[in-house]
Design a protein around this nucleic acid. Sequence first.
DNA 1: TTGAAAGCGCTAACAA
DNA 2: TTGTTAGCGCTTTCAA
Lengths: 338, 338
Amino acid sequence: MAIGPRPVLEDVARLAGVSLGSASRALSVPELVKPATLERVNRAVEQLGYVRNGSARALASRRTMTIAAIYPSLDNPIFAVSIQSLQQTLWDLGYQLLVASHDYRPEREVGLLRSFVERGVDAVVLVGTDHDDAVFELLSQYKIPYVLTWSVDTSSQRPCVGFSYFDAAFKMAQAVIEYGHTEIALCPGQSYRNERVRARILGTQAALESAGLKLRPEWIIEQPFTFEGGRSAVRQVLGGVQRPTVLICGNDLIAIGAMAECREQNIYVPVELSITGSDDIELANMVDPPLTTVHVPKVEIGSFAAHRVVSLIEGATALEVSPLSTRVVIRGSLRKVT
Amino acid sequence: MAIGPRPVLEDVARLAGVSLGSASRALSVPELVKPATLERVNRAVEQLGYVRNGSARALASRRTMTIAAIYPSLDNPIFAVSIQSLQQTLWDLGYQLLVASHDYRPEREVGLLRSFVERGVDAVVLVGTDHDDAVFELLSQYKIPYVLTWSVDTSSQRPCVGFSYFDAAFKMAQAVIEYGHTEIALCPGQSYRNERVRARILGTQAALESAGLKLRPEWIIEQPFTFEGGRSAVRQVLGGVQRPTVLICGNDLIAIGAMAECREQNIYVPVELSITGSDDIELANMVDPPLTTVHVPKVEIGSFAAHRVVSLIEGATALEVSPLSTRVVIRGSLRKVT
DNA sequence: TTGAAAGCGCTAACAA
DNA sequence: TTGTTAGCGCTTTCAA
């Protein structure tokens, strides 16, 4: 096989006895080439061990077949599942995935995006709907298709693939209330530059209000989306004069951290304190007691986003935004109060 | 800002009143340009809202500033942590990361790699040392630098960043033996095309043998690296005539799944069955009882691999392979047998 | 269906 | 230090 310098398409063309153009067509649009020609080109490719040069293709065709995704973090299990399905689906559609994380510092997003624009990506996948104006300007200036994920923003015209955090929170709070709880604390995550957390707070409040309850401000505890965030939340909640009977957490990581802290402090979950999470990561069903949570379509978000973004690249006009569905999953960590 | 077509470097040069070459240098090697010239080019860039075209740069310079990584899965927490640090470190070094997963089907690796070679990546990061010959051939044929991660292969000359699975397993088995266990079962993962699993089996066997024990073949239970794998392992182990007093698992996911299954079957961990894991994912310390496991340098593997692979791109000769260290972390899931 | 030829936008070698 | 110029390897008109 190929000795010396890497063969180029011209070598293939020469060996096959066709023109450069035909060789190119044989590889890119084989159906436009006579079977016999195709055959000869393929044989030449084989013989030379020829491999196309992606950079040259990208330059000439103005398509990189690459899509970038920017996440708050790559190792949060909820995102990881979604990244996995995004990558797989994109790959099947012929696209490669470039990933970056802003490490929960949204202000870094513009910089990351700028680099991606410069390197040339055909489209971008972002998490959430709340982004710096500069992000959207960059995207529109360079006419780069994008899709926002996880959250849906029905008020804007932006393409989204996600679910309603408001509804999810509303349903969970409703379930908690149905179970007899009235002393309810919420650890929603951190709301800065994060519409998902804000929607969660609003959804929870709405559910409480419609049951004639209210969410005390001192029981809205903002914490990072980590085990440690959950531990702190529990410490804070237990430190107050009055104690809630349930702690609704903004994701399963927080909830599991909270459960671990309770165990350490000998607070029996769910008898002394019920705990709920959100997302329904696989782990939620592995801990003791199993975690009550809301199931969200992690895998679908990844694969739908892939399809959506590719169809935008291929010129589809924005489709309507219909939120994916979520459902509350009741498990042992939520107790009935009588 | 930029109306009409996207400005190109020539526009910048014209506006700045310098040549194309100077404009290019001002952006790529500013120290080779007179400050005054640099200043004018920068101003022109600013004015036009100019952004370099990555494909053209890549074609002309033969460097894509892109590195590809192929993982068994992107959502296994152990890999996710490492991907996060790989990406961050590469980004700081000026490289972007392309990811793909072969979904625990190693035979797909060559195909993925071929696509990456075609699109043009400056280097590749792979998991493990055991790969199809075609993988290594491809890499050497196209002279693509690579680094193998997690495992180290001291016998070959390949660049690795990882630790000794044999030692890790040996140490864990030793600890288990010290705790008085003699009836020991192992659920190491799946050994097909996975030298890490094989090393784990050998390390465990060696430790047992040096204590005058032996690992029964029927107590080596191959299962996937998932919660479900752990559950099956427990079912299998409990189904036998005799029962082990401890189940050593190949990773924390398996171990946590095993613990969950025990809970369901009312087997009290660690009294009736001790369980140990490997990797020390954050979760290991969150479950009840906390998991005894071996701590492995997940973050370091990512960041060291990044540095290593970049130095290979920049022409470094292979450095010596020195395995990173691991340590057993004893927690509640391992019980002393008296 | 094919061939010829003109770029795609940049880097880098060379000369000045 | 700067300008000139020749590609990098492919896709894509256009005409035949």
